[in-house]
């Protein structure tokens, strides 16, 4: 049995090369796990790179637990190794929303995005901004959704931060899934509003609109 601190990720099989981390599928203390390894990025100065990788690894570990308290499903965290910027987590058997969005019916799409909005609202009402809500960071498990990639998350009650979270979803859905964007967002907003209530939802949408107006060359009516 490996000792704590001995995150032996060399044995894992690379299953995904993400933007800032490699995801390896392997075994840890007899468990079926993924190793999320924030490897040194060659393009960034080492002093800057180490600080960022260290901070995001610890942040992610902390926020995975915070999300669970908010009753939002996340992978179970088994081990944290700050030195190698590695997290050892439960292997989630499921597809990323990005990958299955194109092959579900419109009813299913509405349902999935309703849950997406509902769960994001649960995070927000618990004071958590996810910070990286693209469709690649939401997976399907059983009848619900699992949220991953909390490296950019923040503790925040601010309207602005919550609106920035939703802005990224909108940017991703419109940018990468334009064919289903309006139906997806409609479902998302319904789910979000069902948790935060109509008044807060209106405030968040208004702030989202303000942020969009700040965009370069934007003409938002």
């Amino acid at each position: 049995m490996k000792s704590p601190g001995d995150a032996d990720y060399a044995s894992g099989k690379l299953i995904y090369c993400g933007a800032e981390a490699d995801i390896l599928h392997g075994e840890w203390q007899g468990l079926d796990v993924v190793y999320k390894v924030r490897k040194a990025l060659e393009y960034r100065l080492a002093i800057l790179d180490e600080a960022i990788r260290h901070q995001r690894t610890l942040r992610e570990a902390e926020m995975i637990h915070q999300a669970k308290k908010a009753e939002v499903d996340t992978p179970s965290l088994y081990h944290v190794d700050p030195t190698s910027a590695t997290l050892v987590m439960e292997f989630v058997k499921g597809d990323r929303l990005r990958d299955f969005i194109g092959r579900i019916s419109s009813e299913e799409l509405a349902e999935v995005f309703f849950m997406f909005g509902r769960d994001v609202a649960k995070l927000h009402t618990s004071g958590i901004m996810h910070g990286d809500l693209t469709t690649a960071n939401v997976m399907r498990r059983g009848g619900g959704l699992v949220f991953i990639d909390f490296g950019l998350s923040l503790r925040s009650e601010r309207l602005e931060d919550h609106a920035v979270d939703i802005r990224l979803i909108k940017e991703t859905v419109v940018g990468a899934h334009s064919g289903v964007a309006s139906a997806a967002l409609e479902g998302f907003y319904k789910g979000y509003s069902s948790v935060v209530g109509a008044a807060r939802f209106r405030q968040v949408l208004k702030q989202l609109h303000n942020i969009e107006r700040r965009g370069r060359y934007a003409r938002v009516a």
Binding site: A19, E20, L41, R44, L45, T172
Partner: peptide, 14 residues
């Protein structure tokens, strides 16, 4: 590094 990181995010995403 910031713009390279977000470009990397979009590259991995797409």
């Amino acid at each position: 590094a910031m713009v390279t990181e977000v470009t990397e995010r979009c590259l991995a995403f797409t």
